[in-house]
Amino acid sequence: MSNLKRFVLRLAGFFSLQAAVAGVVLTPYMINYRDVVANGFMAASIDKQAELKQPQSRPRLVLVGGSSVAYGYSSPLLKDHLQYEPVNMGLHAGLGAEFMLREVEPGLKSGDIVVISLEYENFIGFPPGAKDVYDVIEADWRNVQFLPLSYLPSLMDEGLVFLGGVFRRSVASATGDLERKPYYQRNSFNNYGDVTGHYGLPQVTEKIASEGKTFNFDPQDVQYVIRSLNEFNQRAKARNIRVFYSYAPLMKKVLTENQTQIENVAQTLSKSLEFPILDRPEDVAYLDSAYFDSRYHLNQDAARQRTIALIDRLSPHLPIAHHENSPDRP
């Protein structure tokens, strides 16, 4: 046997031993962990995609974005006041704009309306970090189909981070050390895809306080995302699907602190987006008390307020909206 072959065999032996150790030691943990993942926040993507595939008697209003969308709308209210079936596809900003658009595109049908709201982080640093992308793949491996090629380098770079995390979380889930917030679970979403698990819970101020405060946009990243949005719009238009943009509901205080930066992005968007923008950043910025546990996550009342604002701004664009059936103003 050649030395090289002997070496490769020995290396394979070492990794087989580690696989065996993993199998023996971690399997009991993994069984429990599988359950945790299947009921976790990211697993809601399975339900959302299923909802999007459901045949509907009327066209849909598909809401696209990160968690600000998941937390930011009251779909029952939308359903009551617009002649569209709402599907809230919002899940996590960390998935990046390209993933979000790819995820919804196959399920769209002629006549649907799409409202996109991207968190401002989606215009900073491209491609996004791989952690959240791995989490959504872990929840359902079929999500791989929505990955753009541009994510590949960061996914490869962070592959070991993910693997180590799986082992750590597996053990932690069995020992009870894995923190599982009840409002970050698959069952925190209603049938339309809105997060409702936090309704009635008190505000979590520590998490809001720990979030970064400043945005540093890279013009190249902004242009990249705009290009993706416009290309999506082109394809949607060809299928008789109308696309709109609505700003993410950023906390007023944070918006004020980043006024110039956000205004620059807003100006670029108004200049370059090839589909209508329904509002301005300040139209959907609320006071601190309107947020649950993040500068983007609205509480129940604020989500309702934002939904009403969307109904008002979207209605004039919709041929089949019920204008006379105006929602109650808060």
Binding site: L17, E158, R168
Partner: peptide, 20 residues
């Protein structure tokens, strides 16, 4: 020896900060 290698491998994978 293999016990030491295995222990180091798992300490690194389990407790290591794989943060790129």
């Amino acid at each position: 020896r293999w016990l030491v290698y295995t222990a180091l491998f798992w300490i690194t994978l389990f407790w290591g900060t794989w943060n790129t």
